[in-house]
Structures are given as structure tokens and as C-alpha cells.
């Protein structure tokens, strides 16, 4: 799991991880956490496509590179 702190006030944390339910088992997801008085809470989750290979945080935008394996005849 990768982590980023997108805002300079240290109040937020972005985690790149995997979804943990039967709906999208082991699928990549981004989790935005807010930390208030030491207590983390989940603000939102963004489902991601494919298997994450790398990422870059530029400003407040996170660029996530992944590989999406396509099922096609003969492949």
C-alpha cells in the first residue's frame, strides 16, 4: 500500500490499496482519509482500474498508472 499526504496541513491521507469486499475482491482502490484530533475517518473511496504499478502526486492531483489485463479471444 502506498500513501500520500496531499494537503500541507497534514489533515488528510491518501492510501492506495485494495478493496476488501466480495463486490470487487482485491481490486485496486484509493482511500481518502481525514485525520481529526488523531482519529482517522474514511472520507471517500475511488475505485481504480487494473493493477497499480506506480503513482505520482503533483499538487493535489494523484496520477496512478496501472495495468489492465484484457480478456480477448486468442490472448
Amino acid at each position: 500500500m502506498n500513501s500520500f499526504t496531499p494537503y500541507s496541513d497534514g489533515s488528510s491521507l491518501v492510501l492506495l490499496g485494495r478493496f476488501n469486499s466480495q463486490a470487487r475482491p482485491s481490486a485496486a482502490s484509493l482511500f481518502l482519509m481525514r485525520v481529526s484530533t488523531g482519529v482517522p475517518t474514511l472520507v471517500t473511496e475511488v475505485p481504480l482500474t487494473g493493477a497499480v504499478t506506480d503513482s505520482r502526486l503533483i499538487g493535489n492531483r494523484l496520477y496512478v498508472l496501472s495495468n489492465d489485463y484484457l480478456q480477448r479471444d486468442g490472448t
Binding site: 493535489n60 496501472s66 489492465d68 484484457l70
Partner: peptide, 15 residues
């Protein structure tokens, strides 16, 4: 077969 996917997450407005 696979393709590379570059996703941009502006946390308020994913592109």
C-alpha cells in the same frame, strides 16, 4: 493482452 491505464484523481473531480 494488457493496456496501461493512467488515471488522474483530483479528489474533488476525477478526470
Amino acid at each position: 493482452m494488457s493496456e496501461a491505464v493512467l488515471q488522474v484523481i483530483d479528489l474533488a473531480n476525477p478526470a
